[in-house]
Measured scan of single mutants.
Amino acid sequence: MSIQHFRVALIPFFAAFCLPVFAHPETLVKVKDAEDQLGARVGYIELDLNSGKILESFRPEERFPMMSTFKVLLCGAVLSRVDAGQEQLGRRIHYSQNDLVEYSPVTEKHLTDGMTVRELCSAAITMSDNTAANLLLTTIGGPKELTAFLHNMGDHVTRLDRWEPELNEAIPNDERDTTMPAAMATTLRKLLTGELLTLASRQQLIDWMEADKVAGPLLRSALPAGWFIADKSGAGERGSRGIIAALGPDGKPSRIVVIYTTGSQATMDERNRQIAEIGASLIKHW
């Protein structure tokens, strides 16, 4: 067993022997301040990774656009098919120029040779490549099948209805392509620590998230040296922004954090800054 596999296998073990965790309302004060600064709703939840206990939450059962955070769930569904012998990570998928959609920095470079399922998941999570996500959605049967996968996990809230990039439209009061912070946090925890996926697939999923290259201005910008984070960000229309993450000190994750916002007129930089400040408060009061 590799060191990384050992780390993920012992996530519940280490967490069980940690000192009790206590909620700190100071972080919620910052979440509410972010709402004021952005002029928009902000949803927040913080779960203990081992027990699933909610440590703090704000608007945990209000719907927010998922945006690209759905790509972690998508690759979880792909990995479940791999575990069941219905898919192979090494299978190569070929596609054409007509398949390319807006923001496809990886797939646009491989029109000639195609990409493997493993490479597509890596591109979808680490670079948020939209064509990679659409190609992977095709392998599982489309958005409705991802929703069905989530329902089978016990998540009857999260739903995907459309493809990239239309799913980022974020129309107010439109339930399409949305989740709730509580539902997303619980589902992410199941994917990373539950028995739904094999140990190898859980490790692969967290490795992809740990290698995320496009979430630097968010929670990662607030992390002290030595902290662990595996995350996936999302951005959408109407001032929408979000991030889902597993993080913790001492090089291992111990909490799940989900943050979503929508309806702001603020710039992307300002949305990023507010999420980073929430992260800084979380870490300060850990």
Rank of each mutant, 00 (worst) to 15 (best):
residue 24 H to C: 09
residue 24 H to D: 08
residue 28 L to Q: 14
residue 30 K to W: 05
residue 33 D to T: 08
residue 35 E to V: 05
residue 36 D to R: 14
residue 39 G to R: 08
residue 40 A to L: 05
residue 44 Y to I: 06
residue 45 I to M: 15
residue 45 I to Y: 15
residue 46 E to I: 14
residue 47 L to C: 15
residue 47 L to W: 04
residue 49 L to H: 05
residue 50 N to R: 11
residue 63 R to Q: 11
residue 65 P to N: 04
residue 67 M to A: 12
residue 70 F to C: 13
residue 71 K to D: 00
residue 71 K to H: 00
residue 74 L to E: 04
residue 76 G to I: 06
residue 81 R to C: 05
residue 87 E to S: 12
residue 88 Q to W: 15
residue 92 R to W: 11
residue 94 H to P: 07
residue 94 H to S: 09
residue 98 N to P: 07
residue 99 D to W: 14
residue 101 V to M: 14
residue 101 V to A: 11
residue 106 V to C: 15
residue 107 T to M: 06
residue 114 G to Q: 04
residue 115 M to V: 09
residue 117 V to P: 04
residue 120 L to P: 01
residue 120 L to G: 03
residue 123 A to D: 03
residue 124 A to G: 14
residue 125 I to K: 01
residue 128 S to P: 01
residue 130 N to S: 12
residue 131 T to L: 14
residue 132 A to Y: 00
residue 134 N to E: 01
residue 138 T to F: 12
residue 140 I to N: 05
residue 143 P to C: 11
residue 143 P to A: 08
residue 143 P to K: 04
residue 143 P to S: 13
residue 146 L to K: 00
residue 147 T to W: 05
residue 149 F to Q: 11
residue 149 F to M: 14
residue 151 H to W: 09
residue 156 H to M: 11
residue 158 T to H: 00
residue 161 D to A: 08
residue 162 R to L: 04
residue 166 E to S: 13
residue 169 E to L: 09
residue 170 A to F: 06
residue 171 I to P: 15
residue 171 I to G: 15
residue 171 I to S: 14
residue 173 N to C: 08
residue 175 E to Y: 13
residue 176 R to E: 06
residue 179 T to D: 00
residue 180 M to R: 10
residue 187 T to G: 10
residue 189 R to C: 09
residue 191 L to P: 00
residue 192 L to Y: 06
residue 192 L to E: 02
residue 193 T to A: 11
residue 193 T to P: 01
residue 197 L to H: 05
residue 199 L to M: 13
residue 200 A to K: 15
residue 205 L to E: 01
residue 211 A to P: 04
residue 212 D to T: 13
residue 213 K to T: 05
residue 214 V to F: 06
residue 218 L to P: 03
residue 219 L to Q: 03
residue 222 A to E: 10
residue 224 P to H: 13
residue 225 A to K: 14
residue 226 G to W: 10
residue 229 I to C: 10
residue 229 I to T: 03
residue 232 K to E: 01
residue 232 K to D: 00
residue 238 R to F: 12
residue 239 G to E: 03
residue 240 S to C: 09
residue 242 G to L: 02
residue 244 I to R: 00
residue 244 I to N: 00
residue 246 A to W: 07
residue 248 G to F: 00
residue 248 G to C: 01
residue 252 K to L: 15
residue 254 S to N: 13
residue 258 V to T: 07
residue 260 Y to K: 00
residue 261 T to N: 04
residue 262 T to F: 07
residue 264 S to A: 13
residue 266 A to I: 06
residue 268 M to E: 10
residue 269 D to R: 12
residue 270 E to V: 10
residue 271 R to M: 13
residue 271 R to L: 11
residue 271 R to Q: 13
residue 272 N to L: 02
residue 274 Q to M: 11
residue 278 I to V: 14
residue 279 G to F: 05
residue 280 A to T: 13
residue 282 L to K: 01
residue 282 L to I: 07
residue 286 W to P: 03
